[in-house]
Amino acid sequence: MKKVAVVSLSGNVGKSTIAKHLLLPRMPGAEFIAVESINADEGSDDMVRGDQFGQLQEELMMMDSAVVDVGASNVEDFVKLMQQYRGSHEEFDLFVVPTVKDSKQIKDTIATVQALKAMGVPARKITVVFNKLQSSETVEEEFYPLIQYHEVSKAYTLRQSAAVDYSELYHKLRVHKTTIPELIADTTDYKAKMREAKDDEEKMRCVAMVSMRRLALSAHENLDAVYAAITKK
Score class of each variant (00 low, 15 high):
89 H>C: 07
223 L>D: 06
180 I>W: 10
94 L>K: 06
89 H>V: 07
126 I>E: 02
138 T>L: 03
155 A>S: 13
213 R>V: 02
156 Y>S: 01
166 Y>I: 06
62 M>T: 09
223 L>V: 06
38 I>Y: 10
115 A>F: 11
112 T>V: 12
82 M>E: 03
77 D>I: 09
229 A>M: 09
56 L>K: 13
83 Q>Y: 08
182 E>Y: 01
9 L>N: 07
157 T>R: 15
162 A>H: 13
4 V>P: 03
160 Q>I: 11
75 V>D: 05
230 I>S: 12
162 A>I: 08
194 M>G: 01
192 A>H: 06
173 L>V: 07
13 V>N: 04
45 D>I: 02
63 M>L: 14
172 K>S: 11
183 L>I: 01
60 L>N: 05
113 V>T: 09
146 L>Y: 09
209 M>T: 01
13 V>Y: 09
58 E>W: 15
56 L>M: 15
42 E>A: 08
213 R>Q: 13
28 P>F: 00
182 E>G: 00
2 K>Q: 11
177 K>D: 12
160 Q>C: 09
6 V>R: 06
174 R>C: 08
169 L>T: 08
219 A>M: 12
122 P>F: 00
117 K>S: 14
55 Q>G: 04
180 I>H: 05
212 M>R: 08
121 V>T: 10
219 A>L: 09
2 K>G: 15
138 T>A: 04
199 D>T: 05
142 E>S: 13
147 I>S: 01
171 H>R: 13
128 V>R: 06
80 K>A: 14
142 E>T: 03
95 F>I: 11
216 A>D: 01
130 F>N: 07
